[in-house]
C-alpha cells in the first residue's frame, strides 16, 4: 500500500505509523463526563468504507497527516497535513453498543 504524504509524495506504507481513529475527540482534561471519556477511549465506528484516520510519516518528514482511507478498497481519497486541516469528526454521538 502507498500513502501520499502531502510533503514527500507517494511512499510505502512501511514509512508511516498509524496514530489512530481521526474521529476521536479528547474531552477536556478536567472533564467529569464519563460517557465522553468512554467514547474517546473505546467507541469506534469501524466503518466498511471511508475512514478518517491520523497517520504520521515517521520514516520521512515526520508530519502528521489526516487520511481518508476506504477500509474495503484501501483507496485513500484524501491525505492532508493535520496542521491547518479542517477537523472532520462525526457529529452524532454514538450510542453504547450501537452498530456502525
Amino acid at each position: 500500500m502507498l500513502l501520499t504524504c502531502p510533503y514527500c509524495g507517494p511512499r510505502d506504507v512501511s514509512e508511516f505509523t498509524y496514530q489512530g481513529d481521526g474521529n476521536r475527540q479528547r474531552p477536556a482534561p478536567n472533564s467529569q463526563d464519563l460517557q465522553a471519556w468512554n467514547e474517546y477511549v473505546y467507541d469506534r465506528q469501524n466503518p466498511a468504507g471511508d475512514h478518517n484516520e491520523i497517520w504520521q510519516h515517521s520514516g520521512g518528514c515526520r508530519s502528521h497527516i489526516r487520511v481518508i482511507r476506504n477500509t474495503v478498497s484501501h483507496v485513500t481519497s484524501s491525505t492532508v497535513p493535520v496542521r491547518g486541516a479542517v477537523h472532520h469528526r462525526s457529529t452524532e454521538r454514538r450510542k453504547p453498543g450501537a452498530k456502525a
Binding site: E15, G59, C61, R62
Partner: peptide, 8 residues
C-alpha cells in the same frame, strides 16, 4: 532532497 529510511 528526500527524507526517508532504510529499515530504521
Amino acid at each position: 532532497a528526500r527524507s526517508t529510511t532504510h529499515h530504521d
